[in-house]
Nucleic acid binder design. Structure first.
Lengths: 342, 342
DNA sequence: TTTGACATCCAAAACGTTTCGGATTATACT
DNA sequence: AGTATAATCCGAAACGTTTTGGATGTCAAA
């Protein structure tokens, strides 16, 4: 069926070895034969068998991405953009991208990582949504398997990552609200196990404290990162005897859910209550009102994560394996000063 | 390094052949030796080398998904959900999923399909966002390469697909608006090259005609499927001397963009102007106001597409290779009767 | 004429698996 | 005793590539 080295060898009248080396451009095959080989290869439409090459070279030229998916109705704008980033970068270097989808912290997820670690499946992994005491990272470190994470974590091994400076981002929002005159600010926190959520929550609390503002515990509620979750828990904030004048959500999706519920209550977002999100997903510019948020260059993060991984796989440890991107505040109509008559 | 059949063979004291056949469960190896082999394999932590097996079996146990991505800031809630669907289904059957990202109709995309067709890369492909005169499908058909499409197209080859009945869906919305009393309905069409857009547009026009309503050309504008696009082109509808009382967008993303711009103009969506989308992405329940739309079981479509592909790869042509899913209308607050004083 | 250097080529092994076609031994049947 | 039958096993080839370690021949320098 497919054209192999043997076919070319027969046609040209040399050995398979010579064909292989000729095509690879080694200089121990005469220029003339090399040209002849190339010519016949083109004419026959030769394309090397990747599987065979992989078996021989003991590498797959493939990157793995194990996507943590929650439930069947899984939709996160983060992933398509990130995927496009790593996909394009990988393709540029001639790498394929193998994608698995598994529920976080599930047995199947663990098994997928185990499979990667024991070799031959992919050359390296991209890890996203780092978790507290991240078992995945512990495993990869322990086996010295090449990987790069999007996000830091608190395990005691040193590993390469690209991350946004969530603390800095949150500081920007909180300060923005405080500068506008807000004193009572509610926070919709991401689930505690996710590292990026922790950074955001901690930074929220510390920035408040740095401004001599206290944050009573009932001003912090926890959502599940979805619109639905945001909508549900913002209720608790709205029902407080002394309602906050501003609400910050740990991500845009929850902020959008909150927007929805707040407006259903008849409150005007931006006037009666300020709201901010985090991530600047494309949608956040088109909500009603448009959402104040922190911009994250997800596509670029994907590219850089992937590029770093490829460097590592090829034995070129990056000069700086810890990239921390400083985010920027995007002010839109969902934020405004507190109502004076409050 | 890794444990191979040879290691087990040496340990047990039989040939590599016997180990291979023993593990595979052939009955020409004694039960006793089989158990012994299995035991040693477990103890040594044997896992077959997939690359070697692939080379031998001449199949990759891998499915390909070539994602059409537009521009760097690419974010489409459709893809993460679809990906989760095919990913989970594929994993259930022991298949890996190889994902490439390429701009539609680009040389790199063509090259990716060419690579698939010439074999050895993946066992089958999943094609999405079918296009008019879809070159990809022509190629795959011509080479008899296993694939399943999400979406139909107008080429003259017969091929397996899963699709939503876009025409039926659009009929539901249009009829819904007409029943509410609307007569002048604007339409934000998807780009013309995409088949699903054509079905939706055609059904919009024909349903209008079936109700003896005319659709002057300036009531149909064309967007690029993004919020930004929806926001931009809805302006043209709003600027018309005789403004429509309802607007239907070809997908939810554009509807959301339209929502934004309409409200910026000071119009109340649902009262002053009715709006509907198409897809029922999770966000559409949380816009302000929530969006009337057509529900698409994307996750399920992903699963079914994948399942069908695996059947085909394994030489079991599905009884019904043309699945058409009937969508349902989801009425939310963005739709309402036309203003009486119009 | 020998020596060495160089240019060009290739056979064979290797990567780890599966499969083909027997080979060997024991068992049962004439 | 001889012969068929079944139960076990295995050597070798195959999948398509790359690499190792020469082999062969040519030419120039000593």
């Amino acid at each position: 069926m497919a054209v192999t080295l043997k076919d070319i060898a027969r046609e040209v009248g040399v050995s398979v070895t010579t064909v292989s080396r000729g095509l690879a451009g080694y200089d121990d095959v005469a220029a003339e034969t090399r040209e002849r080989i190339q010519e016949v290869a083109d004419q026959l439409g030769y394309h090397p068998n990747l599987t065979a090459r992989r078996l021989q070279k003991q590498r797959t030229d493939t990157l793995g991405f194990i996507m943590p998916t929650f439930g069947p109705r899984f939709s996160d704008p983060f992933f398509s953009e990130f995927l496009a980033g790593i996909g394009n970068e990988a393709a540029g270097y001639g790498y394929d991208l193998l994608v698995s989808t598994h529920a976080p912290d599930s047995d199947r997820e663990r098994e997928a990582y185990a499979r990667a670690v024991r070799g031959g499946w992919v050359d390296g992994l991209i890890v996203v949504r780092t978790r507290e005491n991240d078992e995945r990272i512990e495993t990869l470190c322990a086996h010295e398997f090449p990987f790069v994470a999007f996000g830091r974590t608190d395990c005691n091994c040193d590993f390469p990552y690209v991350d946004e400076d969530g603390a800095a981002g949150m500081r920007l929002i909180v300060q923005h609200f405080i500068d506008l005159g807000h004193r009572r600010i509610g926070f919709i926190a991401p689930p505690p196990g996710l590292m990026f959520g922790r950074y955001r929550l901690r930074s929220f609390l510390s920035t408040m404290a740095a401004n001599n503002l206290e944050t009573p515990p009932d001003l912090v509620v926890e959502g599940d990162m979805t619109q639905r979750g945001g909508a549900e828990v913002v209720e608790r904030l709205l029902n407080l005897a002394e309602r906050p004048t501003a609400v910050i959500a740990g991500n845009d999706l929850m902020a959008i859910g909150a927007l929805n519920r707040i407006q259903q209550r008849g409150l005007r977002v931006g006037q009666d209550l300020a709201v901010a999100g985090f991530d600047d997903i494309p949608l956040s510019a088109y909500t009603t009102p448009p959402l104040t948020t922190i911009h994250q260059p997800i596509y670029d993060i994907g590219r850089r994560t992937c590029a770093m991984l490829i460097e590592i796989i090829n034995g070129r440890p990056p000069a700086n394996p810890h990239i921390l991107l400083t985010p920027e505040l995007v002010v839109r109509e969902s934020s405004g000063p507190p109502r004076t008559t409050n």
